[in-house]
């Protein structure tokens, strides 16, 4: 495997340059203790990274250790409240309610976090629910971010608010993960796909489903794409070839509906969790988008980014070859 930031390159005693901290923020009048990890120079361009529904910041661990990106960018990845190491608020009887995410709560959290960390002109990047929220951010807070990257983003993503994902007669630990198995491309390395499933298995009861309320119910921009102010805050919609929830074509249609300032890019041979299902390929792809944002890229971004375009050769183990090569 190429690249210096991939797990196979570590030796005993190596310590990764990721720092973890807790910051206290207010969301809709409630105080939350929010965990975040970061790497990169203090004066680097802040790149705030949002995990997917029911997951946590570990999805970004290979971006956080990408030496080239963290040379110029201060990469920050947080756990939303109730996710990962961000415990539920200590002032609330949260156990008497079903956890439910909404567009308003989600945007309040992200803007409160950016404010609390005093991020100047940050770039926001998120996947899935974190991708969809770029539309609300550009609608409601176009001045707060330098640019928005919506990975696996669409105007509408119905059909995944499923009761079985929080049901006492279902093994939701495993089901919440493997309901997402096919969201990843079969070309992605099996180790990375399995780790993505492992991260899903860490979610608390009902949190994945509660996030999907926002994702599949509350978020619906089909009739209001004209409200998305991409002309004030550039918006990149980058959807993976194997993302069956928000397809590359959905991304193109969404960008077209938004108009000026919105750019759609298809990411070939990758799926809905690009940063964790195939970190090497994703990091190479995202360098192209970041270069476009910072003005370091001369040519316009192509309609489709392929592995060949970014110098990545896909690894031989295909989906049918899941046995160890012994």
């Amino acid at each position: 495997m190429e690249g210096t930031d991939m797990p196979t390159s570590y030796q005993p005693g190596d310590v990764e340059p990721i720092d973890g901290s807790y910051v206290h923020i207010d969301v809709e009048g409630v105080s939350h203790r929010v965990y975040y990890e970061e790497n990169g120079p203090d004066d680097g361009i802040p790149l705030l990274c949002q995990h997917t529904a029911g997951n946590n910041c570990q999805q970004w661990r290979h971006l956080l250790t990408d030496e080239e990106i963290t040379e110029n960018f201060r990469v920050i990845a947080h756990d939303l409240p109730y996710h990962g190491k961000s415990v539920p608020p200590t002032t609330q009887e949260w156990w008497t309610d079903d956890y439910t995410m909404t567009a308003k709560k989600f945007t309040d959290t992200l803007v409160s976090l950016a404010d609390a960390l005093e991020l100047e002109d940050p770039i926001y990047m998120g996947s899935s629910m974190g991708g969809n929220i770029t539309l609300e951010l550009a609608d409601w807070y176009p001045d707060r971010f330098q640019a928005l990257i919506g990975l696996e983003c669409g105007a509408h993503s119905p059909g995944f608010y499923i009761d079985w994902l929080d049901h006492p007669e279902v093994n939701t630990t495993e089901v919440n993960a493997y309901a997402c198995w096919g969201l990843m491309a079969p070309q992605s390395p099996e180790q990375s796909r399995r780790e993505t499933m492992y991260l899903y298995e860490q979610g608390a009861t009902g949190v994945f489903k509660g996030d999907l309320y926002y994702y599949s119910v509350d978020h619906d921009y089909r009739d209001k794409l004209d409200q998305v102010n991409a002309d004030e805050c550039p918006l990149y919609i980058a959807n993976g070839e194997y993302d069956y929830l928000t397809t590359p074509e959905d991304g193109r249609q969404t960008a077209k509906g938004i108009g000026e300032g919105a750019t759609a890019i298809e990411l070939a041979q990758i799926g809905h969790f690009p940063m964790s299902e195939h970190p090497e390929l994703f990091n190479a792809y995202i360098r192209e988008l970041l270069a476009d944002i910072t003005g370091d890229r001369d040519e316009a971004l192509p309609d489709v980014l392929e592995p060949d375009d970014v110098g990545i050769e896909l690894h031989p183990p295909g989906p049918a070859r899941e046995k160890p090569a012994d």
């Binding site: 309901a179 096919g182 491309a185 079969p186 070839e241 194997y242 295909g318 989906p319 049918a320 070859r321």
Partner: peptide
């Protein structure tokens, strides 16, 4: 197929 095409690559997707 060894590398199945998008959307017929897994049962929930399909």
């Amino acid at each position: 197929q060894e590398t199945p095409p998008a959307f017929n690559h897994e049962i929930i997707a399909s």
